[in-house]
Protein backbone atom coordinates (compact mmCIF):
# COMPACT_ATOMS: atom_id res chain seq x y z
CA UNK A 1 0.00 0.00 0.00
CA UNK A 2 2.76 2.40 1.00
CA UNK A 3 4.76 1.69 -2.14
CA UNK A 4 1.67 2.30 -4.27
CA UNK A 5 1.13 5.65 -2.64
CA UNK A 6 4.66 6.77 -3.30
CA UNK A 7 4.43 5.65 -6.92
CA UNK A 8 1.22 7.67 -7.26
CA UNK A 9 2.86 10.82 -6.01
CA UNK A 10 5.85 10.11 -8.23
CA UNK A 11 3.75 9.95 -11.37
CA UNK A 12 1.85 13.04 -10.33
CA UNK A 13 5.14 14.79 -9.81
CA UNK A 14 6.26 13.98 -13.32
CA UNK A 15 2.87 14.97 -14.67
CA UNK A 16 2.94 18.44 -13.21
CA UNK A 17 6.56 18.84 -14.08
CA UNK A 18 5.78 17.72 -17.60
CA UNK A 19 3.00 20.27 -17.95
CA UNK A 20 5.22 23.10 -16.78
CA UNK A 21 8.02 22.02 -19.05
CA UNK A 22 5.61 21.94 -21.96
CA UNK A 23 4.36 25.42 -21.40
CA UNK A 24 7.80 26.94 -21.23
CA UNK A 25 8.97 24.88 -24.14
CA UNK A 26 5.96 25.84 -26.21
CA UNK A 27 6.73 29.50 -25.58
CA UNK A 28 10.34 29.00 -26.53
CA UNK A 29 9.67 27.21 -29.81
CA UNK A 30 6.98 29.73 -30.61
CA UNK A 31 9.48 32.51 -30.09
CA UNK A 32 11.95 30.83 -32.43
CA UNK A 33 9.23 30.34 -34.99
CA UNK A 34 8.39 34.04 -34.85
CA UNK A 35 11.73 35.19 -36.15
CA UNK A 36 11.62 33.75 -39.67
CA UNK A 37 7.86 34.27 -39.95
CA UNK A 38 8.10 37.98 -39.19
CA UNK A 39 11.18 38.32 -41.33
CA UNK A 40 9.67 36.74 -44.42
CA UNK A 41 6.07 37.88 -43.79
CA UNK A 42 3.29 35.39 -43.70
CA UNK A 43 3.09 33.53 -46.97
CA UNK A 44 2.44 29.94 -46.25
CA UNK A 45 4.70 28.70 -49.06
CA UNK A 46 7.61 30.47 -47.50
CA UNK A 47 6.69 29.10 -44.11
CA UNK A 48 6.48 25.62 -45.58
CA UNK A 49 9.78 26.25 -47.32
CA UNK A 50 11.24 27.14 -43.97
CA UNK A 51 9.96 23.86 -42.57
CA UNK A 52 11.16 22.06 -45.69
CA UNK A 53 14.61 23.35 -45.09
CA UNK A 54 14.59 21.33 -41.89
CA UNK A 55 12.92 18.08 -42.95
CA UNK A 56 9.68 18.64 -44.93
CA UNK A 57 6.25 17.62 -43.64
CA UNK A 58 6.94 16.68 -40.01
CA UNK A 59 4.85 13.48 -39.82
CA UNK A 60 6.84 12.07 -42.78
CA UNK A 61 10.24 13.16 -41.46
CA UNK A 62 11.84 9.80 -40.95
CA UNK A 63 14.69 11.23 -38.90
CA UNK A 64 12.31 11.55 -35.95
CA UNK A 65 10.99 8.00 -36.28
CA UNK A 66 13.54 6.20 -34.07
CA UNK A 67 13.05 8.65 -31.23
CA UNK A 68 9.27 8.48 -31.47
CA UNK A 69 9.27 4.70 -31.66
CA UNK A 70 11.60 4.27 -28.74
CA UNK A 71 9.75 6.72 -26.54
CA UNK A 72 6.43 5.27 -27.56
CA UNK A 73 7.71 1.82 -26.65
CA UNK A 74 8.96 3.07 -23.28
CA UNK A 75 5.89 5.08 -22.35
CA UNK A 76 3.25 2.76 -23.74
CA UNK A 77 5.07 -0.27 -22.36
CA UNK A 78 5.16 1.32 -18.92
CA UNK A 79 1.53 2.35 -19.28
CA UNK A 80 0.50 -1.17 -20.28
CA UNK A 81 2.46 -2.61 -17.36
CA UNK A 82 0.89 -0.24 -14.83
CA UNK A 83 -2.59 -0.77 -16.23
CA UNK A 84 -2.40 -4.56 -16.32
CA UNK A 85 -0.56 -4.99 -13.01
CA UNK A 86 -1.98 -2.27 -10.80
CA UNK A 87 -4.91 -0.22 -12.02
CA UNK A 88 -7.09 -2.78 -13.78
CA UNK A 89 -6.82 -5.50 -11.11
CA UNK A 90 -7.68 -2.86 -8.55
CA UNK A 91 -10.82 -1.79 -10.42
CA UNK A 92 -11.72 -5.40 -11.17
CA UNK A 93 -11.37 -6.30 -7.50
CA UNK A 94 -13.50 -3.36 -6.42
CA UNK A 95 -16.19 -4.19 -8.96
CA UNK A 96 -16.13 -7.85 -7.99
CA UNK A 97 -16.36 -7.05 -4.29
CA UNK A 98 -19.26 -4.73 -4.95
CA UNK A 99 -20.91 -7.37 -7.10
CA UNK A 100 -20.46 -10.00 -4.38
CA UNK A 101 -21.71 -7.61 -1.74
CA UNK A 102 -24.81 -6.79 -3.73
CA UNK A 103 -25.41 -10.48 -4.43
CA UNK A 104 -25.04 -11.39 -0.74
CA UNK A 105 -27.25 -8.48 0.28
CA UNK A 106 -29.87 -9.66 -2.17
CA UNK A 107 -29.60 -13.20 -0.81
CA UNK A 108 -29.96 -11.87 2.72
CA UNK A 109 -32.99 -9.84 1.70
CA UNK A 110 -34.44 -12.93 0.03
CA UNK A 111 -33.88 -14.96 3.21
CA UNK A 112 -35.49 -12.28 5.38
CA UNK A 113 -38.41 -12.10 3.00
CA UNK A 114 -38.81 -15.88 3.31
CA UNK A 115 -38.82 -15.58 7.07
CA UNK A 116 -41.40 -12.83 6.91
CA UNK A 117 -43.58 -14.92 4.61
CA UNK A 118 -43.28 -17.84 6.99
CA UNK A 119 -44.22 -15.68 9.95
CA UNK A 120 -47.18 -14.30 8.05
CA UNK A 121 -48.29 -17.80 7.08
CA UNK A 122 -48.07 -19.12 10.65
CA UNK A 123 -49.86 -16.03 11.93
CA UNK A 124 -52.62 -16.55 9.43
CA UNK A 125 -52.82 -20.21 10.27
CA UNK A 126 -53.19 -19.54 14.00
CA UNK A 127 -55.68 -16.82 13.19
CA UNK A 128 -57.71 -19.33 11.17
CA UNK A 129 -57.46 -21.88 13.97
CA UNK A 130 -58.63 -19.34 16.51
CA UNK A 131 -61.48 -18.39 14.27
CA UNK A 132 -62.41 -22.04 13.86
CA UNK A 133 -62.29 -22.58 17.59
CA UNK A 134 -64.44 -19.52 18.19
CA UNK A 135 -66.92 -20.86 15.67
CA UNK A 136 -66.96 -24.24 17.40
CA UNK A 137 -67.51 -22.67 20.79
CA UNK A 138 -70.29 -20.50 19.43
CA UNK A 139 -71.89 -23.49 17.77
CA UNK A 140 -71.82 -25.74 20.84
CA UNK A 141 -73.07 -22.92 23.02
CA UNK A 142 -75.88 -22.27 20.60
CA UNK A 143 -76.76 -25.95 20.54
CA UNK A 144 -76.70 -26.21 24.31
CA UNK A 145 -78.87 -23.14 24.74
CA UNK A 146 -81.19 -24.42 22.06
CA UNK A 147 -81.47 -27.76 23.84
CA UNK A 148 -82.27 -26.21 27.19
CA UNK A 149 -84.79 -23.89 25.56
CA UNK A 150 -86.40 -26.86 23.81
CA UNK A 151 -86.53 -28.82 27.07
CA UNK A 152 -88.08 -25.97 28.98
CA UNK A 153 -90.55 -25.34 26.24
CA UNK A 154 -91.51 -29.03 26.12
CA UNK A 155 -91.93 -29.04 29.89
CA UNK A 156 -93.97 -25.87 29.81
CA UNK A 157 -96.10 -27.19 27.03
CA UNK A 158 -96.63 -30.46 28.84
CA UNK A 159 -97.74 -28.56 31.98
CA UNK A 160 -100.06 -26.42 29.94
CA UNK A 161 -101.65 -29.40 28.20
CA UNK A 162 -102.20 -31.07 31.56
CA UNK A 163 -103.81 -28.00 33.00
CA UNK A 164 -105.93 -27.57 29.89
CA UNK A 165 -107.08 -31.17 30.16
CA UNK A 166 -107.95 -30.67 33.81
CA UNK A 167 -109.84 -27.52 32.97
CA UNK A 168 -111.72 -29.25 30.18
CA UNK A 169 -112.58 -32.10 32.50
CA UNK A 170 -113.82 -29.66 35.13
CA UNK A 171 -115.86 -27.80 32.50
CA UNK A 172 -117.36 -31.09 31.33
CA UNK A 173 -118.26 -32.02 34.93
CA UNK A 174 -119.79 -28.66 35.59
CA UNK A 175 -121.62 -28.86 32.33
CA UNK A 176 -122.92 -32.40 33.04
CA UNK A 177 -123.96 -31.39 36.52
CA UNK A 178 -125.68 -28.31 35.18
CA UNK A 179 -127.43 -30.31 32.54
CA UNK A 180 -128.49 -32.87 35.13
CA UNK A 181 -130.10 -30.15 37.21
CA UNK A 182 -131.91 -28.69 34.19
CA UNK A 183 -134.49 -31.53 34.23
CA UNK A 184 -135.18 -31.17 37.96
CA UNK A 185 -135.57 -27.40 37.63
CA UNK A 186 -137.85 -27.83 34.63
CA UNK A 187 -139.95 -30.43 36.49
CA UNK A 188 -140.21 -28.24 39.58
CA UNK A 189 -141.05 -25.21 37.44
CA UNK A 190 -143.62 -27.13 35.50
CA UNK A 191 -145.20 -28.52 38.73
CA UNK A 192 -145.31 -25.04 40.21
CA UNK A 193 -146.85 -23.67 37.05
CA UNK A 194 -149.46 -26.40 36.85
CA UNK A 195 -150.46 -26.03 40.48
CA UNK A 196 -150.54 -22.28 40.07
CA UNK A 197 -152.77 -22.60 37.08
CA UNK A 198 -154.97 -25.05 39.07
CA UNK A 199 -154.77 -27.73 36.52
CA UNK A 200 -155.32 -30.72 38.83
CA UNK A 201 -152.86 -33.14 40.15
CA UNK A 202 -149.96 -34.33 38.06
CA UNK A 203 -147.56 -36.93 39.26
CA UNK A 204 -143.93 -36.37 39.41
CA UNK A 205 -143.36 -39.22 36.98
CA UNK A 206 -145.63 -37.69 34.37
CA UNK A 207 -143.87 -34.38 34.73
CA UNK A 208 -140.39 -35.72 34.31
CA UNK A 209 -141.58 -37.78 31.39
CA UNK A 210 -143.03 -34.69 29.75
CA UNK A 211 -139.85 -32.69 30.45
CA UNK A 212 -137.64 -35.28 28.94
CA UNK A 213 -139.92 -35.52 25.95
CA UNK A 214 -139.85 -31.73 25.54
CA UNK A 215 -136.06 -31.75 25.76
CA UNK A 216 -136.01 -34.27 22.98
Amino acid sequence: MASENTSTTDTEGTASHGAEGTATHGEASHGEGMAPASGEMHTSTEAAGHGGGEAGFPPFDSSTFPSQLVWLAITFGLFYYLMSKVVLPRIAQTLEQRHDRIASDLAEAERLKGETDEAIASYEQSLAEARQRANDIAKTTRERVQQSIDAERAEAEAGLAERAAEAEKHIAEVKAKALGEVDAIATDTAEALISALGGGKVTKAELSKAVSEARG
Binding site: E4, N5, S7, T8, T11, E12, T14, A15, G18, A19, G21, T22, H25, S29, S63, T64, P66, S67, Q68, V70, W71, L72, I74, T75, F76, L78, F79, L82, M83, V86, V87, R90, I91, T94
Partner: peptide, 28 residues
Amino acid sequence: LDLSFTNSSLFMVATVAATTGFLMLATS
Protein backbone atom coordinates in the same frame (compact mmCIF):
# COMPACT_ATOMS: atom_id res chain seq x y z
CA LEU B 1 20.23 6.63 -33.98
CA ASP B 2 18.71 9.89 -32.85
CA LEU B 3 16.72 8.93 -29.76
CA SER B 4 16.39 12.43 -28.40
CA PHE B 5 13.79 13.25 -25.81
CA THR B 6 11.51 15.50 -27.85
CA ASN B 7 8.28 17.36 -27.37
CA SER B 8 6.57 14.22 -28.68
CA SER B 9 8.29 12.11 -26.03
CA LEU B 10 7.35 14.69 -23.44
CA PHE B 11 3.68 14.39 -24.31
CA MET B 12 3.85 10.62 -24.35
CA VAL B 13 5.27 10.78 -20.85
CA ALA B 14 2.68 13.37 -19.84
CA THR B 15 -0.14 11.25 -21.26
CA VAL B 16 1.01 8.17 -19.41
CA ALA B 17 1.74 10.06 -16.21
CA ALA B 18 -1.56 11.94 -16.18
CA THR B 19 -3.64 8.88 -17.02
CA THR B 20 -1.85 6.57 -14.61
CA GLY B 21 -1.83 9.23 -11.91
CA PHE B 22 -5.53 9.84 -12.34
CA LEU B 23 -6.46 6.17 -12.34
CA MET B 24 -4.21 5.41 -9.38
CA LEU B 25 -5.67 8.28 -7.41
CA ALA B 26 -9.22 7.45 -8.44
CA THR B 27 -8.96 3.80 -7.48
CA SER B 28 -6.85 4.20 -4.35
